[in-house]
Design a protein around this nucleic acid. Structure first.
Lengths: 338, 338
DNA sequence: CATAACATGTAAATCGTTTTCATCACGTTT
DNA sequence: AAACGTGATGAAAACGATTTACATGTTATG
């Protein structure tokens, strides 16, 4: 690897370092002739300006850090794609941080901003990775930040997601419309806001339909396939079994279906199963999964756009912003058995 | 956000910047008393050293960039986890770059090293993202780099993967042992080395079993579910249909199964389906997918370890290194129908 | 022709660290 | 008492870019 600096290039091209710098950042200030001359030297030498030097001076890194609990979950696929694309188009690079849900690692990545390695944060979590003094305005204590998909309990930052309560309600209404009356719910961990909101939608929808709430039909799992299976197992042990199971994400729904099938049940003839997220695989499992579609690419796009606005010094209004969900009715839900 | 520098801290603590620096990087050179005094000021001010300044001086960023075609594919999950963990434990941070398979974006991320934002590259692709002069030794022209999972046609760099030829051979032998004689293959794009290697294993295994190669049983797809479905469709149109389909990755296998089921075929009673990779969902689709298990975490671990060795200036021997695969026999393969 | 206006280029300061080298205080050895 | 280590600290020079303020050269204007 070569290690030429701006001074070397300047020397080779018989100009000053400042001129070389201008060739990159404000070419309109350089005459056509020198521009070409310098450009030629740059190309020949394969010179790339050292970002460290530049960032040090400009106090901008051109990087955005995205803090994501589990990068490899398909639910994040669309978001990541949208983020990268939006960032790229505005001249930013994305540093993807996978936290495995650990606060320590969330803070580690958030720290990149403090260290000057990133200019802003795209967060997909339910807590702010900074120590906050509640008596002072939040905005003074955190860098430019947008939260997506999950929910943080403050209206001082920009948050983009679907309305989990309504979405969950719509899901239950779908099951009700198929004649189901005993509808179980497989929830996420009880400290996760999105799970609580979906639970809220569930209870509201049942209440509206005049159905008594039965907490035996509520099983907690951890947003993954394995615990989804375990949850289904618990439900099968009930003496009065549910005819439908609403899972708060698709992974758990896949687990529930798997276990039901293993135990000889037919989905949806015996039990209907519904998911949430609409991950790519939802369409391809057997039977294909009825689920709540989240506009993940749109969410990603909205997040990155809002963040870049903030970085450009534009004012953006804080608070939650809801994007519309849709129901994907597929083959895992059907009429309630009589 | 505060913006205190090392000089501010030094002033507050009545020491020189050098001492503050030493507190971070070589505390043993500082007396206990000053250490405590400085540490206290650092904590109170919430001071974090600016990485740009430090990197500029040390010419090391402490970052590793991982270049991955599609971060969100489950096949990469284990690799990413292992990388992050290995890096973290050695004091490195990982910048994850998702390229969507585009060479332009591969080069973009590779450029981070040239720009001083990263010290080395973990590549998961089939080409080197640099312009190479073939007449000169490769090592002089690229930064520390390890390639994983795919294959680049050179023995001058470290590469870690499973032996695709043998693995594919083992897969076919499994199908042969079940009595299958007409075994189709759904390949990846024809410019992808791993696909070609798996194809090689396929033909070799058939040859060894004395079965004539029939190119009608070869269908090309693109390593994803949708094209897997299309491939299955083509196979169903054959007048002499295969009794087993070996797909060169799990996504395509899931697609193949989906289409077969849609068309009323039973897997595995009518047709056996086999995959490759052993992604997490392979176990949970219905029927659960028989596949070739790649030790993805091990691959990730080996890659990061080798790279860090290189970064530490240790000599590592170039060339391919194979990690052992295993067969996961599940429910999607069964005896050939007579 | 003198002067203003503009285009172009330069020198030097600066960003926040690390690190070499020199200095200093102090106890030990001769 | 002189010489010598030793350990702790500070001063200052990098690292590689950007940018401000200024110097030059060129052209247009009165």
């Amino acid at each position: 690897m070569s290690k030429l600096g701006i001074k070397d290039i300047a020397a080779k091209a018989n100009v000053s370092p400042a001129t070389v710098s201008r060739v990159f950042s404000s070419p309109h200030l350089v005459s056509k002739k020198t521009l070409q001359k310098v450009q030629k030297v740059i190309d020949e030498a394969g010179y790339r300006p050292n970002r460290m030097g530049a960032s040090l001076r400009t106090r901008r890194s051109g990087n955005i850090v995205a803090i994501i609990p589990d990068i490899t979950k398909p639910v994040n696929a669309g978001i990541i794609r949208a983020i990268e694309q939006g960032a790229q188009s505005q001249g930013y690079s994305v540093l993807l941080g996978d936290t495995q849900g650990l606060e320590e690692r969330e803070r580690h990545y958030a720290d990149l901003v403090g260290q000057g390695q990133a200019d802003g944060i795209l967060l997909f979590g339910d807590r702010i990775p900074f120590d906050i003094d509640p008596s002072r305005p939040l905005k003074e204590q955190i860098p430019p930040l947008v939260n997506g998909n999950e929910r943080i309990d403050t209206d001082e930052i920009v948050q983009v997601a679907v309305d989990n309560v309504s979405a969950s309600q719509a899901a239950i209404e779908h099951l009700l419309s198929l004649g189901h009356r005993r509808i179980a719910a497989v929830t996420g961990p009880d400290n996760v806001p999105s799970s609580n909101e979906r639970l809220q939608g569930y209870t509201q929808a049942l209440a509206k339909a005049g159905i008594d709430f039965d907490d035996k039909l509520l099983v907690q799992a951890e947003y993954d396939v394995e615990t989804g299976m375990r949850a289904a197992n618990k439900l099968l042990l009930l003496k009065d079994r549910p005819t439908a199971v609403f899972c708060f994400n698709d992974d758990m729904a896949i687990g529930v279906m798997k276990l039901l099938q293993q135990q000889g049940f037919n989905v949806p003839a015996d039990v209907s199963v519904m998911g949430f997220d609409d991950i790519h695989y939802a369409e391809f499992v057997t039977p294909s999964l009825t689920t709540v579609h989240q506009p993940l690419e749109e969410i990603g796009k909205a997040c990155i756009n809002s963040l870049i606005k903030q970085l450009n010094g534009q004012e953006v209004e804080a608070g939650r912003r809801f994007l519309p969900f849709t129901l994907k009715i597929r083959d895992s839900t059907g009429p309630a058995p009589k």
